[in-house]
Simulated assay, not measured.
Amino acid sequence: MPFVDPTPGPKPAVEIFPAAVDGRIPQILAVNKPPKSHHPTPLFIGFTRNWPILQQSVVSYITAGWPPVDIYVVDNTGTMDSNELGLLTLQNPFFIDYPRLRALGVNIITAPTLLSFAQLQNFFLYTAIRRNWGHYYWSHMDSAVLSDEEQHPYRSLYQRIVENWSSMDKTEKWAIKLFEYDYLALVNVAAYKDVGGWDTQIPFYTTDCDFHARLRMKNYTITEEKVGHIFDVGATVPDLSVFYPGTANEPLNGERFKYLRKLLDDFQSSKNKEKSDRNFWQAAQLGGKGEPFYRNPVGFEKAMQHWIETGRTVYAEKWGHRECDIWEIGKEIDKAWEYKEDWLV
């Protein structure tokens, strides 16, 4: 199949947080402020392309109450120290603003090289093991969250995350708690180690089918939970200040919240309806030529598509099955690579 142009109507990146440019990061809602002392809730957000989308995700988590000190942005651009040294520009797809992230109070971890999705997941796991974390959360950089301000009694998204952890049956053989699939997920480090981590030979799509099935084959549970509004978006709001209240004691469920919720919901709907490629946002920037570790953005996206298709082939050969239901149809973890291709029968 010929590849469709991965950059339909690319648009230049623009600054979407002018208040932060002026050094005026607003205050979040008083009822959303995280406690000074709290249960550790490390949250990984991996980044490869499109800085505005990432910044929106980070701001949304902070304004929903997640302690910035617990947020770890993983620079997975493969540009080594270029972003830390400020050598890339905004139109470069791999640009990330380290000073802005530090001003927001979050942590930055630089991946040693460009990692595939499966490799990035194993890097999260490796980092958690090295830091002696028994669990961690992770989210997509194209996710945005809001606390449910229509809920009574009201609790911020982060407060509900803490309550969710506190109410868990710790004797359960659990692996993952999903909040809107894996747009936000809680991970049990011991379970991930037990099944050998993610299969890096299936680098992108269907790697979750493989990994989640292997967990279930070893009788681990994967459950879905609800803690607030979590959106899968491909666009950004015009000004990130809209995530912050006019005053620290702004009434809940007001016009700002309703406007923001509808806008994010529209972004999600538009992304899901995109005919050419729902991940169009990844290839929206085309600049950076001549900068360190430059990659042709169109070529980069085309190569990714080839890699994705190869991963699907590996998955199919591994399980003798092309669909995502290998656990449901009775495949066994110890028989991987021994199955005959069922699509030839």
Results as ranks from 00 to 15, higher is better:
residue 319 W to H: 08
residue 325 D to N: 15
residue 337 W to G: 03
residue 329 I to C: 04
residue 321 H to R: 14
residue 307 W to I: 01
residue 338 E to M: 13
residue 310 T to S: 06
residue 305 Q to V: 05
residue 306 H to E: 10
residue 314 V to F: 06
residue 329 I to S: 09
residue 326 I to L: 06
residue 320 G to S: 10
residue 339 Y to M: 09
residue 340 K to T: 04
residue 330 G to C: 07
residue 330 G to V: 02
residue 304 M to C: 02
residue 317 E to K: 15
residue 318 K to T: 02
residue 300 F to L: 01
residue 314 V to T: 10
residue 328 E to A: 09
residue 311 G to L: 00
residue 340 K to Y: 03
residue 327 W to Y: 14
residue 334 D to Y: 12
residue 302 K to H: 11
residue 338 E to Q: 14
residue 312 R to Y: 01
residue 303 A to Q: 15
residue 319 W to N: 10
residue 312 R to W: 00
residue 312 R to A: 01
residue 315 Y to R: 09
residue 320 G to K: 12
residue 338 E to S: 15
residue 337 W to L: 03
residue 333 I to S: 15
residue 318 K to L: 03
residue 320 G to T: 07
residue 324 C to D: 07
residue 330 G to F: 07
residue 332 E to G: 03
residue 340 K to W: 02
residue 331 K to Y: 06
residue 314 V to A: 10
residue 307 W to M: 14
residue 306 H to G: 08
residue 340 K to A: 12
residue 304 M to E: 11
residue 327 W to M: 11
residue 325 D to Q: 07
residue 314 V to I: 11
residue 337 W to M: 02
residue 329 I to D: 01
residue 321 H to W: 10
residue 309 E to A: 02
residue 327 W to H: 14
residue 314 V to Y: 08
residue 305 Q to Y: 08
residue 316 A to Q: 12
residue 328 E to M: 08
residue 324 C to M: 06
residue 312 R to N: 06
residue 303 A to N: 15
residue 327 W to I: 04
residue 323 E to V: 01
residue 303 A to C: 14
residue 326 I to Q: 11
residue 317 E to N: 12
residue 320 G to M: 10
residue 328 E to T: 02
residue 315 Y to C: 04
residue 318 K to F: 03
residue 334 D to N: 14
residue 336 A to Y: 07
residue 323 E to T: 03
residue 324 C to I: 03
residue 301 E to N: 13
residue 316 A to R: 15
residue 314 V to K: 11
residue 334 D to L: 14
residue 312 R to L: 00
